[in-house]
Design a binder for these strands. Structure first.
Length: 213
DNA sequence: GGCCAGGCCGGTG
DNA sequence: CACCGGCATGGC
């Protein structure tokens, strides 16, 4: 069932090629440690924030040559906060960036979750997109889209299990699926239902939300 | 002008 | 454990 949804979304939106490094879509997998780091920073900045705003923050960091681990480690919280301001929650996020950048241990899921400011979605985004580990990423779009379709799960872990149990354990599939979910959430499965959108949605036949209306 | 955006933390019951 | 307020900008 989930694979079927995936295929419908893929047919509609095409290959997404996430993660979008420096705001450019269609990138390949990260080639080096610095690109991996940039993905991690983007994942933290993207917490409950529109990606457009994250791009501005990344651009500010990049222009100052601060989009790397060393620079962020040695920067003052205040300076970071000013640069990442467009991404919102800038005081918290400045602290989060520094704590992540100065973490030296092994990047397991458990260790990531132990870092202040890294929750399950951020951890899974880092593991999947920066380190190519097969953890399915669950976000608000995932819950909204599949919740409306009639899938039920209580917690983050339940949602994740739902996908990981049914899908082949394949990071490339996970990456593409999550990216497609975000795209679909932005374009069609909006928080506030917009008149007519559901009628053009490629997965509406599988959706309770549409059928009920 | 209100709602939403690729969450997470800390306090409370 | 579940729930909630706080954190903050920018686009629509």
């Amino acid at each position: 069932m989930l694979l079927k949804i995936y295929k419908l979304l893929f047919k509609k939106y095409g290959k997404q090629g996430w993660w979008p490094l420096k705001g450019k879509y269609g990138c390949k997998n990260p080639k080096n440690e610095n690109e991996r780091f940039e993905i991690c920073i983007g994942a933290i900045l993207a917490q409950n924030t529109a990606w457009k705003n994250v791009e501005k923050a990344l651009e500010n960091l990049s222009r100052k040559n601060m989009l790397n681990r060393k620079a962020i480690c040695s920067a003052a919280n205040q300076q970071l906060a000013i640069l990442i301001k467009p991404a919102g929650y800038y005081n918290q996020k400045a602290r989060k960036l520094k704590l992540f950048a100065s973490f030296n241990g092994k990047l397991t899921r458990e260790n990531l979750l132990g870092i202040w400011g890294i929750g399950p979605e951020t951890a899974d985004s880092i593991l999947l997109y920066a380190y190519n580990k097969p953890y399915f990423v669950v976000d608000t779009y995932t819950k909204r889209i599949f919740g409306r379709m009639g899938f039920k799960a209580e917690s983050y872990n339940d949602w994740q299990l739902l996908f990981e149990r049914e899908l082949p354990r394949n990071s490339e599939l996970y990456k593409e699926f999550h990216a497609l979910i975000v795209e679909h959430g932005k374009r069609f499965c909006r928080a506030k239902a917009i008149n007519g959108l559901c009628g053009k949605c490629v997965v509406s036949k599988h959706c309770d939300y549409f059928r009920v209306k």
